[in-house]
Design a protein around this nucleic acid. Sequence first.
DNA 1: CTAGGGTTAG
Length: 359
Amino acid sequence: MVSGFASAGHMGMAEECFRDAPEKEDAVLWTAMVSGYMDAGNVDKAMEFFQAMPVRNLVSWNAVLAGYVKNSRAEDALRVFKTLVRDANVRPNESTLSSVLLGCSNLSALGLGRQIHQWCVKLPFSRRVTVGTSLVSMYCKCGDLEGACKRFSEMRTRDVVAWNAMISGYAQHGDGREAIRMFEKMKHKGVEPNCITFVAVLTACIHTGLCDFGIQCFESMQEAYGIEPRVDHYSCMVDLLCRAGLLERSVNLIRSMPFEPHPSAYGTLLAACRVYKNLEFAEFAAGKLIEQNPQSAGAYVQLANIYAAANQWANVSRVRRWMKDNAVVKTPGYSWVEIKGVIHEFRGESEGANANEAQ
DNA sequence: CTAGGGTTAG
């Protein structure tokens, strides 16, 4: 019940249940509170519970480790990992390693990642898929693509997740063609791609400018693999089409989506409209963005700039009035400089909906 | 109760 409330984000209820529990020594109960608060982003509360635990097991330690990483506190995660290895009377397992390697990735701490890699080779479970995949991912994110390839080739079994890590690694490093080659190889080996595979492949297409192949993938994921595209797939497609200058196709795709697109899709479109000087679609994209977030200045400014570039000054002032009517708050820009030990702060113009001087 | 893979604009 405690973990039920915790996973639903009702920490108040979870805490009530926790207090009423008959067995106070139960590590499972305490760990549910720790991970519940970690998931809710309340690291301090989570650690209060962890410190107060009468009995800790490996899962409790892993919950703290994973929680720190999730809440972008990788340094703390690594600190906990050191104490875990040194003086906690628990032996790390796969999930310990996954979390700590992800922590290394977030810090781009390649040296430390390598050290942990060397150290974990000796462990009995080091050859499992999960550990291998975590290593591949860590090497990719720390910029050592060669290291990632080595780990990948050492793996005895490679499931979808392992392939996805390698494919997206190539895609992230701008080697879209190699990513696509891996994708073909994966299919050849009989591993079924899943929805995340296609996000990685579409990303690779974006980076490599392979518009037609991307469209082909998008279609085949539905027809050949029965995977329904999600918001992220649509976002990739919008980006792909926009970069190729196919604005109309991109708008049609957005219109055909069975759900609301991610706001960034409109942002991508708007930016592309500026490049390709398309006023009609710019109005459409900016309108949607403003509808979703009328107080934010970004879309108005973009739109006004597009009109200005087309010498449509009447429209520029229309956008300005529109901004005023919606009481747009422009977050003021700050800058500071240190002169002889004194910090001088400057604040940009904050009021006034002057679309030209913004940006 | 913990734990491996994911993207894009400016």
